[in-house]
Design a protein around this nucleic acid. Structure first.
Lengths: 140, 140
DNA sequence: ATTTATAATT
DNA sequence: CTTTTTTTTT
């Protein structure tokens, strides 16, 4: 009866801010989260997952203002399903083929520095970062 | 560079165990994670997300042995992408339409009791459950 | 160190 | 209190 996703990754592009019919700001951006592993046959494999992040309200404005392509972020949120199926929403690509994406509604976006280092010198790992501010967790 | 998903929900069916070419056991089952919210217009909405869980090795055997339809579980794991796209894998439904699913490789599956109560009387919430055993987190 | 491309949440 | 869909990972 609950789920939560936590992502650390890099923005693939500059964020885009829009306004919902209500006037609420939404900003969207894609985050790449990669891992490298060695397969059973010794091949090194790079696996990248792309998440489409949506963030609302004041955090939308902050993300739009301060984030840009290549910036690293920690996102906490929930996956957005197709409400008809409970699965990822299917959309039509330009070439007519079907596509789907991991869409996330962010509850928190934390800005991390570019080079794997915070102002203090080391990025807190996921376990510690999870406990940080939930509402306006922007380090400015 | 990292992501993690945590799910609490109910099995929609009995699990199914298979064996990978290596002889490693894999068991798969679907978990429904629902939330109810009141939309802006006052409508009460039930949103259910379905996750397809894959669990390997010894935990596969334990899940196959002890879980069944309707059982509640806490799953910790990572989303499995289509490696070609980094997005959910698209498959063809029987009727020819495209489908996709949230596939998860579980690192931990914890069995929860049916009625929202553990043997001790209360289910630990997500925050506390996250800190529990990572390897063989089966309460037997 | 980073694509592709839809539409709008509680 | 549950579902539709395939195949197999590190």
């Amino acid at each position: 009866m609950y789920h939560k996703i936590i992502i650390v990754g890099y923005l693939g592009r500059d964020p885009e801010m829009r306004y919902a019919p209500n006037g609420q700001p939404v900003t969207s951006f894609s985050v790449a989260s990669s891992r490298r592993y060695t397969a059973g046959d010794g091949q090194v494999v790079d696996e990248t997952i792309w998440f489409r992040i949506n963030v609302w309200g004041k955090q939308a404005e902050l993300c739009n203002q301060f984030l840009s392509k290549g910036r690293r972020v920690l996102v906490e949120g929930t996956l957005i399903p197709d409400t008809a199926t409970g699965s990822p929403r299917i959309f039509q690509r330009r070439d007519g083929t079907a596509g789907a994406s991991f869409e996330v509604r962010a509850t928190t976006v934390r800005f991390l520095d570019r080079k794997g280092e915070t102002a203090e010198g080391v990025i807190p790992d996921i376990e510690t970062a999870e406990g940080l501010s939930d509402e306006e967790g922007i380090p400015f």
